[in-house]
């Protein structure tokens, strides 16, 4: 399958990339790891008029702790994130999630910024960013994750705005991410994450709606002393997931409850 023709430009700095996006207009897309964009282009579900390749921008793949925050550069690849000692020590759930994205070949290409900007509710990083109150930093501003994911594949990013890094809180307490899928390299049919931050549980869900979901009702029940299995019953409160080839809405809600219970119980 051959993508439709497009104009191609390489940027060597964020400023240059933004200028190119300004010049090329709304139909231009940013090319990072390309592992969501290129498949969409091959299927011609996406036909951007132009691509701005940001892979050559130096210094955008940083992974560092500053104070109580973990900064992950937009071009940090999954393989870097899951093998980073810094991530393993400061936010181990992120390292574990990165190790389960796609397969080796995908992890060698796919990036933090790409996953966040793509805004796929089946992506794993958006769930973590939302439940941990991460900040999405762009060339223009800092956007809290809760204001970032707007709708299906829709984020708060403007056409000429580029994610430069994602800033997570340092959290190395009990945690678990469970990704339910039929094959090892698949997207989650449903995913559930639990992470203790400053003594309080944060709970997030993947692929149960148009955006990632923070399971506040579960968090509140746990805070009031409910057992994991009781609290997890609230995981499907307010959910209205779309059915797909792999799961009906009812089944996804069932999975949300079961996986949430397991994530909390297995967190360590």
């Amino acid at each position: 399958m051959i993508p439709a023709a497009f104009e191609y430009a390489k940027a060597s700095s964020v400023d240059e990339a933004v200028k190119l996006l300004d010049r090329l207009g709304e139909d231009a897309k940013v090319l990072a790891g390309g592992h969501s964009l290129i498949p969409l282009m091959r299927l011609r579900l996406a036909q951007p008029k132009a691509l701005v390749d940001i892979n050559g921008i130096k210094g955008l793949d940083h992974i560092e702790v500053k104070g109580s925050k973990l900064h992950v550069g937009a071009l940090a690849r999954h393989v870097q994130i899951h093998s980073s000692q810094t991530v393993k020590e400061s936010l181990p759930i992120l390292a574990e999630v990165a190790a389960e994205v796609g397969d080796n070949q995908v992890r060698n290409m796919g990036t933090m910024g790409g996953v966040i900007a793509h805004g796929d509710a089946a992506g794993d990083y958006p769930t973590l960013a939302l439940m941990l109150d991460a900040d999405i930093v762009t060339n223009k501003r800092t956007i809290p994750a809760r204001d970032f994911f707007k709708d299906i594949f829709t984020t708060a990013l403007a056409a000429n705005e580029i994610v430069t890094e994602v800033v997570f809180p340092v959290a190395n307490g009990p945690h678990k991410y469970i990704k339910f899928r039929r094959r090892l390299f698949d997207w989650a049919i449903v995913g559930a994450a639990a992470q203790k931050v400053d003594g309080h549980w944060r709970v997030g869900l993947t692929n149960v709606g148009p955006t990632p979901v923070r399971a506040k009702a579960v968090e509140d029940a746990l805070a009031k002393g409910a057992k994991p299995e009781e609290a997890a019953q609230h995981a499907s409160d307010g959910l209205n997931p779309a059915g797909d080839l792999r799961a009906s809405p009812e089944y996804k809600k069932h999975l949300a409850r079961v996986l949430t219970k397991r994530a909390i119980e297995q967190a360590q």
Partner: peptide, 8 residues
């Protein structure tokens, strides 16, 4: 290792 169908 990369998938050469997913790179230009």
């Amino acid at each position: 290792a990369i998938k050469s169908c997913t790179m230009f």
